[in-house]
Amino acid sequence: MSFELLRDDLAGGPAEYLTPAVRPSLVEAQQWCKTLATTHYENFHVATWFLPKRVRPYFQSIYAFSRVADDLGDEVADPVLAANLLTTWQGMLDECYDEPARSRHPVFVALQQTIAETGVPRQLFSDLIHAFQMDQTVTRYESLEQLIGYSRYSANPVGRLVLWVSGYRDEERGLLSDKVCTALQLVNFWQDVVEDWERGRRYLPADAMQRFGVTDEHIAGRVFTPGFKQMMVFLTDYARTMLLEGGAISGTVDRELTVTLDLFRKGGEAAIDGIVAQGYDVLRARPSVSKTTKMQLLGGALVGKLGGLFSSDKPEARP
């Protein structure tokens, strides 16, 4: 879907994200978000298929917000310009909450319905923008604790947004979700060591590197040592334990949401298995999940979806 574009608000960012000159209708905005979600990240599209149809537009607007913000930070070479664009995006978010009639960007037109119908807090979206702002200035992490602090902004708000629009607002579930989301973020870092390094970033924590005798030179030269393997065993075990602990959330939500949460969690476990299967050598090639494993995950999710249609076992959402 194309709009006549206004060349100011997000100038300098990806052209497809520029603000339209004319405010789109809600239907047009929702279609824009749906297209972005289904063309940029297949796994998100598949996972949301297992959700109740009524809440899918909420998830698509949330994804679109996050996708644009991520690209404003990652796809703009100049960190100063990227930071300014993210500041603009925050201003557009504030306008969406404070003066919704002024919003013209399809993301915020679509997001207004999500906000109006679910009451989702502004801070969760602002936290995501904060994480992308951090990416412009922080390119090395000294400890696992620091990485977990980053995930508090970069990953955990996504899980809490999912819970919120699904009707679950209590802190107990929120903390379990945080563990799953943080673990998924860490696993992604462990998979992308070389790619991140080539982009000038290192998410392997310095304290773990020092503990196992790993240096930046090992990453730069793709030198896989026994110490590097021991470090990866430690880091992947750490993430797997978090996934296991956070996975308890699946027993506390309705069956349809459980299917989606389990799909993401099991995807994280499969990614860890991919690292293990590669002998923990993430320097040689990016570990991936095989097509067979993906089909097994989807098959299990489909069975869960069908089972949920005939089940009345739905834990009550607590405000």
Rank of each mutant, 00 (worst) to 15 (best):
S2F: 13
F3R: 05
E4R: 15
L6C: 07
P14T: 06
E16L: 12
L18T: 07
T19H: 10
S25C: 05
S25Y: 10
W32V: 10
W32T: 06
T38G: 04
N43M: 14
V46C: 06
A47H: 02
F50P: 12
K53Y: 14
R54N: 08
P57Y: 03
F59E: 07
S61H: 01
R67E: 07
D71R: 05
D71V: 04
G73C: 04
E75Y: 06
L81N: 00
L86Y: 08
M92E: 10
D94C: 10
D94H: 10
R102C: 08
R102Y: 07
V107I: 14
A110W: 06
A110R: 00
L111M: 05
T114C: 03
G119K: 03
L124P: 00
S126C: 12
A131G: 09
M134V: 00
V138A: 08
V138S: 05
T139K: 02
S143N: 06
N156W: 08
L161P: 05
W164N: 08
G174K: 11
T182I: 11
L184N: 12
D192Y: 05
V193W: 03
V194W: 01
D196L: 07
E198A: 04
G200L: 06
Q210C: 09
F212E: 07
G221M: 03
V223S: 14
K229F: 01
Q230E: 14
F234K: 00
T236K: 03
I249Q: 09
S250V: 11
T252H: 14
V253K: 10
D254A: 06
T260D: 09
T260H: 11
L263W: 10
K266L: 15
G268I: 08
V276I: 15
Y280D: 01
R284V: 12
R286C: 01
K294D: 07
Q296V: 13
L297V: 14
G300W: 11
A301E: 05
V303A: 11
L309R: 14
F310I: 15
K314S: 13
E316R: 06
